[in-house]
Simulated assay, not measured.
Amino acid sequence: MKKYVPLAAVFGIVWCFLHGTFSLNSLIFGLLIGLVCIRPFKFLYKPESNFKLFSPPSRIISIMRYFMVLIKEIIKANIVVAKIVTKPKIDIKPGIIAVPIRCKTDLGITGIANTITLTPGTITVDISEDRSILYVHCIDASDPDAVRASVANDLEKYVLEAFE
């Protein structure tokens, strides 16, 4: 139960933000709600052994770097999708591309899959049985190698730094 208390504390802080009142009573109430919410679903929450809620400063910097790269990639992808959509003749070749990944933990795989899905024009469709390949639907899959390189170089290396 001790390992769920820090997560419940995060619930308490989130409750304070949602409620709009930052007081001890509000924090304690949020903490209790967090414990009540976590308890029935504890079998679903299996934290990775190498990921801690309160990370060292180097991990925090890596996570911040990841979010900055994510925002940059979302903006770039929005511009590309806007160019595609505003052309008088849409000349795209949508398709599904197999993208090999280096992430091994559940958190890392979820991070890269969600990062790909958050980027406009792409969506993660499936993962292979051995968890080494993501299947990604792209709005323009005319150059699959460029998509694979973009995922490996622009996204995955930051996910690996931040979450693995």
Rank of each mutant, 00 (worst) to 15 (best):
K2R: 13
Y4E: 05
V10Y: 02
G12Y: 05
L18Y: 01
H19L: 06
G20D: 07
S23N: 08
N25R: 11
N25T: 12
F29Y: 03
C37S: 14
L44W: 09
Y45Q: 06
K46R: 15
P47A: 08
P47N: 07
N50R: 13
K52A: 11
P57A: 14
I60M: 14
I60C: 13
I60L: 15
I63P: 00
M64L: 14
M68T: 08
I74C: 05
I74F: 05
K87C: 12
P88C: 09
I90Y: 03
P94Q: 03
G95E: 08
G95W: 03
I101Q: 09
C103Q: 15
G108S: 04
I109V: 12
I109E: 10
I112N: 02
T115D: 11
T115Y: 11
T115I: 14
T115S: 15
T117I: 07
T119P: 04
I123C: 13
I127D: 12
I127C: 11
S128A: 15
E129T: 00
D130H: 05
L134W: 05
V136I: 12
C138F: 01
C138E: 04
A141S: 11
A141C: 08
P144G: 05
V147T: 08
R148K: 05
A149V: 06
V151H: 02
A152T: 11
L155S: 07
K157N: 12
Y158I: 02
V159Q: 04
E161Q: 07
